[in-house]
Amino acid sequence: MSAEFSMTVNGRTVTVDVAADETLLHVLRDELLLTGAKEGCDEGECGACTVLVDGKPVDSCIYPAPAAAGRTVSTIEGLVGSDGSLTPIQRAFVDGFAVQCGFCTPGFVMTLTALIEENSKPTERDIREALSGNLCRCTGYSTIIDAVLTATEERS
């Protein structure tokens, strides 16, 4: 039996009909063709699939899709402004050499977007703790942390 439900994704209401045990990640990628969220591990270890559900970061690879019924989902594709401009976090990633292979980047950006929503002036420790569930294999994290510090300094 499949599950039909509606949710708001990046400001648009969408209705999908998917397998009852489908994950939110697969609905986003395969049904809605929003491939910015990545499948890195499929078990909530790497954070490459991080999206925001009702503003909170979740691993969409282990989030039951029908549980998102009636909720608001934000993905990396929905972050940019209507004129295509980058958010301060995205801009700081680009300017601060915080992107290498980039496969983890959308997940990092989503987690950090939630972080600065909650805490506009995070310390380095706050940032490192918030990123516990996001693996980056390329950068060694320093440029990412500096990018957040830069973005939050410029914001305030």
């Binding site: 980058l86 995205q90 990633f93 680009v94 959308p106 950006v109």
Partner: peptide
């Protein structure tokens, strides 16, 4: 290539 990557 950082731009398309941060945009997903």
């Amino acid at each position: 290539d950082a731009e398309p990557k941060v945009r997903g």
